[in-house]
Amino acid sequence: MKDSILRLLHWYRDALAAAVLLLIFAFFLSSSRHIQVMIASSVDAKFFPIVICTFGIILCAVNVAAGVVRGNKLRRKEIEEAIGPNVSPEEKSAAIKSVLSIVSIIVYLVLIEPLGFVIASALYLFVQIMLLSERGKRNPILYVVIAVVVSAACYLFFRNVFYLMLPSGLLPL
């Protein structure tokens, strides 16, 4: 079951991506109709978003059709040649690393205000460098030093030279 879903996703990934984009354009087209304007005219604040979304929907529909055709061809070819879904362990680990990287950036932004720029940045830098570095070649002590020095230097430089009011958070800076 899981295999067949993965195969379908692999064959029809283009069609699927275009369908998702089509839905997004459709959502914004519907939102465009509800933009509040005081004086209705043919070319008001709604006009441009409506044109763009309509244009986007048509293009996405073309891409969905092209994606289905391409997917059918790929499906026939792979069934004929008996090629199965082939995801290498490296690719799996890369996908996990990408997701974890995104999560760590989101957590970083959430923590900047309560913890302050220096602590949040140091934590983020350490986690991100650990995530990206190769297993077996990691040097956590060096990474801690880099994370702390870079965060503190950034804070002091931008705060004192460019008067950027980066959040100080827990530290009495």
């Binding site: 950036i105 940045s121 983020y124 830098l125 991100q128 990206l132 570095s133 870079v150 965060s151």
Partner: peptide, 8 residues
């Protein structure tokens, strides 16, 4: 090491 610093 460089890319996370660029992100910050």
């Amino acid at each position: 090491i460089l890319l996370p610093i660029v992100i910050v």
